[in-house]
Amino acid sequence: MELKLADKKSELLEILRIQKENQSSNLSIDSANTNGFVTVTHSYEMIEKMNSRAKQVIAKMDDQVIGYALVMLKEFEDLIPVLIPMFETFKKIEYNGQKLDQLNYYVMGQICVQDHFKRKGIFKKLYEKHKEEYSKLYDYCVTEVSSSNLPSMLAHEKLGFKTIYTFTDQTDTWNILLWDWN
Protein backbone atom coordinates (compact mmCIF):
# COMPACT_ATOMS: atom_id res chain seq x y z
CA MET A 1 0.00 0.00 0.00
CA GLU A 2 1.16 3.53 -0.82
CA LEU A 3 0.21 6.66 1.12
CA LYS A 4 0.58 9.84 -0.89
CA LEU A 5 -0.78 13.25 -1.74
CA ALA A 6 -3.23 13.27 -4.65
CA ASP A 7 -1.69 14.82 -7.74
CA LYS A 8 -3.73 13.40 -10.64
CA LYS A 9 -7.24 14.02 -11.89
CA SER A 10 -7.85 10.26 -11.87
CA GLU A 11 -7.08 10.13 -8.13
CA LEU A 12 -9.54 12.92 -7.39
CA LEU A 13 -12.19 11.10 -9.42
CA GLU A 14 -11.51 7.91 -7.45
CA ILE A 15 -12.01 9.83 -4.20
CA LEU A 16 -15.44 10.86 -5.48
CA ARG A 17 -16.25 7.25 -6.43
CA ILE A 18 -15.44 5.98 -2.93
CA GLN A 19 -17.35 8.90 -1.43
CA LYS A 20 -20.46 8.04 -3.43
CA GLU A 21 -20.27 4.37 -2.42
CA ASN A 22 -20.16 5.38 1.25
CA GLN A 23 -22.81 8.13 1.30
CA SER A 24 -25.25 7.57 4.15
CA SER A 25 -28.11 7.80 1.63
CA ASN A 26 -26.61 4.91 -0.39
CA LEU A 27 -26.12 2.52 2.55
CA SER A 28 -28.39 0.29 4.55
CA ILE A 29 -28.87 1.29 8.18
CA ASP A 30 -27.01 -1.85 9.24
CA SER A 31 -24.04 -1.10 6.98
CA ALA A 32 -23.89 2.54 8.12
CA ASN A 33 -24.01 1.49 11.79
CA THR A 34 -21.32 -1.16 11.32
CA ASN A 35 -18.93 0.47 8.85
CA GLY A 36 -19.63 4.17 9.20
CA PHE A 37 -20.62 6.57 6.45
CA VAL A 38 -19.90 9.94 4.91
CA THR A 39 -22.38 12.81 4.80
CA VAL A 40 -20.98 15.56 2.58
CA THR A 41 -20.93 15.23 -1.20
CA HIS A 42 -18.22 17.04 -3.15
CA SER A 43 -18.26 17.87 -6.82
CA TYR A 44 -15.13 17.42 -8.90
CA GLU A 45 -14.76 21.20 -9.04
CA MET A 46 -14.86 21.43 -5.23
CA ILE A 47 -12.31 18.69 -4.67
CA GLU A 48 -10.03 20.09 -7.37
CA LYS A 49 -10.19 23.55 -5.77
CA MET A 50 -9.39 22.11 -2.33
CA ASN A 51 -6.55 20.04 -3.79
CA SER A 52 -5.05 23.06 -5.53
CA ARG A 53 -4.40 24.69 -2.11
CA ALA A 54 -3.61 21.60 -0.01
CA LYS A 55 -3.14 18.15 -1.48
CA GLN A 56 -5.56 15.44 -0.41
CA VAL A 57 -4.16 12.41 1.40
CA ILE A 58 -4.87 9.08 -0.28
CA ALA A 59 -4.07 5.41 0.15
CA LYS A 60 -3.47 3.39 -3.02
CA MET A 61 -3.09 -0.28 -3.71
CA ASP A 62 -2.30 -1.64 -7.16
CA ASP A 63 -2.56 1.92 -8.51
CA GLN A 64 -6.15 2.26 -7.26
CA VAL A 65 -7.30 4.67 -4.52
CA ILE A 66 -8.67 2.64 -1.60
CA GLY A 67 -9.03 5.42 0.97
CA TYR A 68 -8.77 9.15 1.41
CA ALA A 69 -8.64 11.88 4.04
CA LEU A 70 -9.53 15.33 2.74
CA VAL A 71 -7.81 18.57 3.69
CA MET A 72 -10.12 21.58 3.91
CA LEU A 73 -8.54 24.92 4.67
CA LYS A 74 -10.38 27.72 6.49
CA GLU A 75 -10.54 29.72 3.27
CA PHE A 76 -13.07 27.21 1.93
CA GLU A 77 -15.62 27.72 4.70
CA ASP A 78 -18.26 28.85 2.17
CA LEU A 79 -17.48 26.20 -0.47
CA ILE A 80 -19.91 23.58 0.87
CA PRO A 81 -23.16 25.05 2.22
CA VAL A 82 -23.90 22.16 4.60
CA LEU A 83 -20.58 22.84 6.37
CA ILE A 84 -21.23 26.53 7.01
CA PRO A 85 -22.82 25.83 10.46
CA MET A 86 -19.62 23.98 11.46
CA PHE A 87 -17.41 26.93 10.51
CA GLU A 88 -19.82 29.36 12.22
CA THR A 89 -19.57 27.23 15.37
CA PHE A 90 -15.77 27.43 15.20
CA LYS A 91 -16.10 31.21 15.63
CA LYS A 92 -18.03 30.76 18.91
CA ILE A 93 -16.24 27.99 20.79
CA GLU A 94 -12.93 27.94 22.61
CA TYR A 95 -10.06 25.53 23.03
CA ASN A 96 -7.53 26.14 25.80
CA GLY A 97 -9.01 29.58 26.44
CA GLN A 98 -8.81 30.81 22.83
CA LYS A 99 -11.47 31.04 20.15
CA LEU A 100 -11.05 28.03 17.91
CA ASP A 101 -11.33 30.22 14.83
CA GLN A 102 -8.21 32.12 15.93
CA LEU A 103 -6.05 29.00 16.23
CA ASN A 104 -3.71 27.62 13.58
CA TYR A 105 -5.76 24.65 12.32
CA TYR A 106 -7.16 23.06 9.22
CA VAL A 107 -10.19 20.84 8.86
CA MET A 108 -9.91 17.20 8.01
CA GLY A 109 -12.83 17.41 5.63
CA GLN A 110 -13.76 13.75 5.36
CA ILE A 111 -12.11 10.38 5.73
CA CYS A 112 -13.22 7.14 4.11
CA VAL A 113 -11.79 3.72 3.35
CA GLN A 114 -13.33 1.27 0.87
CA ASP A 115 -15.33 -1.40 2.68
CA HIS A 116 -13.12 -4.43 1.97
CA PHE A 117 -10.06 -2.50 3.22
CA LYS A 118 -11.61 -1.39 6.52
CA ARG A 119 -10.22 -2.62 9.85
CA LYS A 120 -6.73 -3.00 8.37
CA GLY A 121 -5.21 0.12 9.93
CA ILE A 122 -5.64 2.32 6.84
CA PHE A 123 -7.71 4.93 8.72
CA LYS A 124 -4.84 5.39 11.17
CA LYS A 125 -2.24 5.46 8.39
CA LEU A 126 -4.17 8.15 6.50
CA TYR A 127 -4.16 10.31 9.61
CA GLU A 128 -0.47 9.62 10.26
CA LYS A 129 0.21 10.87 6.73
CA HIS A 130 -1.87 13.97 7.52
CA LYS A 131 0.26 14.61 10.57
CA GLU A 132 3.49 14.00 8.64
CA GLU A 133 2.50 16.43 5.88
CA TYR A 134 0.56 19.11 7.73
CA SER A 135 1.85 19.32 11.32
CA LYS A 136 4.71 21.46 10.00
CA LEU A 137 2.15 24.08 8.95
CA TYR A 138 -0.66 23.68 11.51
CA ASP A 139 -0.94 23.09 15.25
CA TYR A 140 -4.29 21.33 15.15
CA CYS A 141 -6.39 19.12 12.95
CA VAL A 142 -10.13 19.66 13.51
CA THR A 143 -13.02 17.61 12.19
CA GLU A 144 -16.71 17.12 12.71
CA VAL A 145 -18.35 13.71 13.16
CA SER A 146 -22.02 12.84 13.38
CA SER A 147 -23.06 11.45 16.77
CA SER A 148 -24.87 8.71 14.85
CA ASN A 149 -21.59 7.59 13.22
CA LEU A 150 -20.27 5.55 16.15
CA PRO A 151 -17.57 3.71 14.13
CA SER A 152 -16.04 7.04 13.11
CA MET A 153 -16.34 8.53 16.61
CA LEU A 154 -14.55 5.54 18.16
CA ALA A 155 -11.81 5.51 15.51
CA HIS A 156 -11.11 9.23 15.97
CA GLU A 157 -11.00 8.95 19.76
CA LYS A 158 -8.65 5.96 19.54
CA LEU A 159 -6.29 8.05 17.39
CA GLY A 160 -6.21 10.91 19.90
CA PHE A 161 -8.95 13.30 18.81
CA LYS A 162 -10.87 14.91 21.69
CA THR A 163 -14.46 16.09 21.50
CA ILE A 164 -14.37 19.81 22.29
CA TYR A 165 -17.96 20.72 21.45
CA THR A 166 -21.26 19.12 20.46
CA PHE A 167 -24.12 20.88 18.67
CA THR A 168 -27.29 20.07 16.77
CA ASP A 169 -28.36 21.58 13.47
CA GLN A 170 -31.16 20.75 11.03
CA THR A 171 -29.35 17.63 9.80
CA ASP A 172 -27.92 15.89 12.90
CA THR A 173 -26.06 16.16 16.20
CA TRP A 174 -22.38 16.85 15.55
CA ASN A 175 -19.19 16.48 17.57
CA ILE A 176 -16.33 18.85 16.87
CA LEU A 177 -13.14 16.89 17.41
CA LEU A 178 -9.63 18.29 17.73
CA TRP A 179 -6.26 16.56 17.42
CA ASP A 180 -3.68 18.67 19.27
CA TRP A 181 -0.25 18.27 17.68
CA ASN A 182 1.57 20.36 20.30
Rank of each mutant, 00 (worst) to 15 (best):
W181I: 11
V142K: 03
N175D: 10
H42A: 09
N182D: 09
L137C: 09
V145H: 03
Y165F: 13
M108D: 13
L70W: 02
D180V: 03
K55H: 11
S147D: 11
E11Q: 04
E144N: 11
E2Y: 07
K99N: 09
I111C: 02
L12H: 02
I122E: 00
T173Y: 05
I15V: 06
G67C: 07
H156L: 05
L73P: 10
I164K: 04
N182R: 13
Q56H: 03
F76L: 08
K136V: 15
Y106V: 02
E14P: 01
C112T: 12
S152A: 08
P85H: 06
E14Y: 00
T89H: 11
I176G: 03
T41D: 10
K131Q: 14
M153G: 11
Y68W: 06
K125G: 13
I122K: 00
L3W: 00
K99T: 07
G97Y: 02
F167T: 05
A69H: 04
V57C: 05
D115W: 03
L73F: 05
F87K: 00
A155N: 05
L13A: 04
A6K: 00
S148P: 10
Y165H: 13
D101P: 13
R17W: 00
L103G: 00
K55N: 11
M153S: 14
S31G: 06
P85I: 09
R17Q: 13
N22P: 08
N35Y: 07
N51Q: 05
K4H: 04
L73Y: 08
C112W: 06
E94V: 08
K99F: 07
H42F: 14
R17K: 15
N26G: 04
I84N: 10
M50F: 14
I164V: 13
L137V: 15
K92T: 09
Y95S: 02
L159H: 07
K8H: 09
S24H: 15
V82N: 10
P85E: 02
H130T: 07
A6H: 00
C112S: 10
